[in-house]
Design a protein around this nucleic acid. Structure first.
Lengths: 364, 364
DNA sequence: CTGTTAGCGCATTCAA
DNA sequence: TTGAATGCGCTAACAG
């Protein structure tokens, strides 16, 4: 463990090179404490000369601050999380913070492990889109906080967990979207994708609680769908709700099934992009024409949605803004010294983008 | 700076709690050196009891290993980089490494800053999709290496820089795609998007060198386009190459322009998704029908491309694999002790997905 | 097997 | 203003 030839120069090296004491060098290099102008210049020159770069790790051990944030999401390859990550990254970089990003593949055990990694690496704050459905499953989050690490939830608030969260109102967004369909004259509206239902519910009552009481985005969107039916006095039909695996294939299969119903839906509300593409495949196979025999609304606008024929009506989520806001809230907590009043739920606005995929039901 | 009440327990605390010396506790907790079974259990129990978690930062200062990788990309919100990041993240997590991700917005100055941050935080390796066009502009990368940090390039190899790189063969992929169009009978093929050309080239010679000698993806794709024309003995027409800003709007404008030509293109090769959506907008406005009056091939397959009407032929990039491979190469270098033979260029396969957007030119 | 003693690189107090 | 001395939490030779 002797210093190797390619060893990076330390403060001691700079001090020697400049002919001053370690602490003096440390002070000017660290930007704290006093130092005469002359000495300062000498030290800076020496540092430059030997290519000195402060060891941020050693500094962190000493100060207790790492200038690093932790981000835990299900999947970085998902454009939604990519946007959130970018928003966080941009906002934190302005404050000289960097971000350690961990993917959990929607697995709670991996999320717990990720949290421990971040605690071990002494990040100054954590932003997490948790897979925990209830406070009881969020012990790792409580643990991080009790370790003194501020935490902010993003995208998904965990019910019962008193922590700041930055989300969108999935329920309201879904309700509005479905209301749009109803306003266009639709009475039978299919719900594609949603909280994983192992088997087909027998009646509406079976759905109560699925999305209630938690902010799990799927559940919220289902509740919004139900809200809209209630608002408009429409009957709920279990046959119009997708069940089973959340895959594009199953979405396609479920929509195909709905199209075979005695009274098929005249419109579909898709809660994710894969639900939308699966639906489109089923519609194409069945010869159903979007915007004519079938109206469509999807979630998460994409540049592709606008160039579809016809263009698809979509709900746009402010991904960058979600990340930026989460970072802002986190920094506020950090600045406040690990405590800043009662936890708040910050709700960002979604935007409904009306395009030609919604039309009056085709009665032929 | 006295230890606060919520101070996290250290090895000393565990040692005290277990009634053993610090080093003994350290050895069992750190998983190195000897310790009797009895003592080991006592220490582990004590650690568990007081909620001890090792300070990874302190450990890193001591060992010189941070178990952290650095990733530098232009934009995490770009699904391509999101996929690469996910691939790296998954591969490195298996080895107990985490990833610090920095976005540079395609700005070289930001990239230099990002590199310095990673050097300062003592990452064990860096993977970068550099914005540097030549070795001369990659001093920061050389600096990282001379600091003893292994570096692997991903997506873009920097010409003249002797460093391992993991890329796809953009030139060959583009050539193949254009060859497909030629095989279908097309003679006038538009090139949408590409290396930023300030003004319209007057003749083909003006394009020589634009993509040659560097692996800048745009340039490579343009060269592949030219290769295909040569292979097939087709004439090059400057009017069929897009110029100006790389935005969806400009792509739309440029395609609109091409459609007004005396001899408009019968097919378009789009090098990015925004180029494709811009093209589609222009085609729709002009009443041109994809797969009939206009054939199309794009880059970066998406689930959307398959559900377009007609489905679009696309070149698929193995984003996850690019990341995984880059991590693999990086770890090999790390394991080899910062040196492992001559730098290699690892080229991953792209896949051409033939769909209905390519058809024989419509002669009407 | 165990504890003592040094470091790692930087921050910070305090006397000079 | 400066430098010596100590500490942060951990690793790691080294004796016992």
């Amino acid at each position: 463990m002797t210093s190797e030839h390619s060893a990076r120069p330390t403060i001691s090296d700079v001090a020697a090179e400049a002919g001053v004491g370690r602490s003096t060098a440390a002070r000017t290099l660290g930007g704290y404490g006093y130092a005469s102008e002359e000495v300062r210049e000498r030290v800076l020159a020496a540092a430059e000369r030997i290519g000195y770069r402060a060891n941020a790790l050693a500094r962190s051990v000493s100060t207790g601050v790492s200038h690093t944030l932790g981000l835990i999401v299900a999947d970085l390859a998902n454009p939604f999380f990519g946007g959130v990550a970018r928003g966080i990254s941009d906002a934190s970089r302005e404050r000289g913070f960097d971000t350690l990003v961990l993917s959990t593949h929607e697995d709670l055990a991996e999320e717990v492990a990720a949290t421990n990694v971040l605690i071990d690496k002494r990040v100054d704050g954590i932003i997490v889109a948790s897979a925990a459905l209830e406070a009881g499953a969020a012990g790792h989050i409580e643990q991080a906080r009790s370790s003194g690490i501020p935490v902010v939830l993003v995208d998904r608030a965990v019910p019962g967990l008193d922590i700041d969260a930055v989300v969108i109102d999935n329920r309201a967004a879904a309700r509005d979207a479905v209301a749009h369909l109803v306003a266009a004259g639709h009475r039978r509206i299919g719900f594609v994708w949603g909280p994983p239902l192992a088997e087909r519910p027998r009646r509406r009552r079976d759905l109560v609680g699925v999305g209630t009481g938690n902010q799990w985005t799927d559940g919220e969107r289902l509740q919004g769908y139900l809200d809209a039916l209630d608002d408009e006095g429409l009957a709920f039909d279990v046959e119009l709700v997708m069940v089973g695996a959340k895959t594009e294939e199953n979405a396609q299969a479920e929509v195909a099934r709905m199209l075979e119903l005695p009274e098929p839906p005249t419109a579909l509300f898709c809660t994710e992009n894969d639900a939308m593409t699966g639906s489109l495949r089923a519609l194409r196979n069945a010869g159903s024409r979007v915007g004519e025999t079938m109206s469509l609304i999807g979630f998460d606008d994409s540049s592709w949605a606008a160039v579809m024929e016809p263009p698809l009506s979509m709900i746009e989520q402010p991904t960058l803004a979600l990340g930026a806001k989460a970072a802002e809230v986190l920094f506020a907590t950090i600045d406040a010294g690990s405590r800043g009043g009662a936890p708040e739920l910050h709700t960002l606005e979604t935007r409904f983008i009306a395009r030609a995929s919604v039309a009056p039901p085709n009665v032929n």
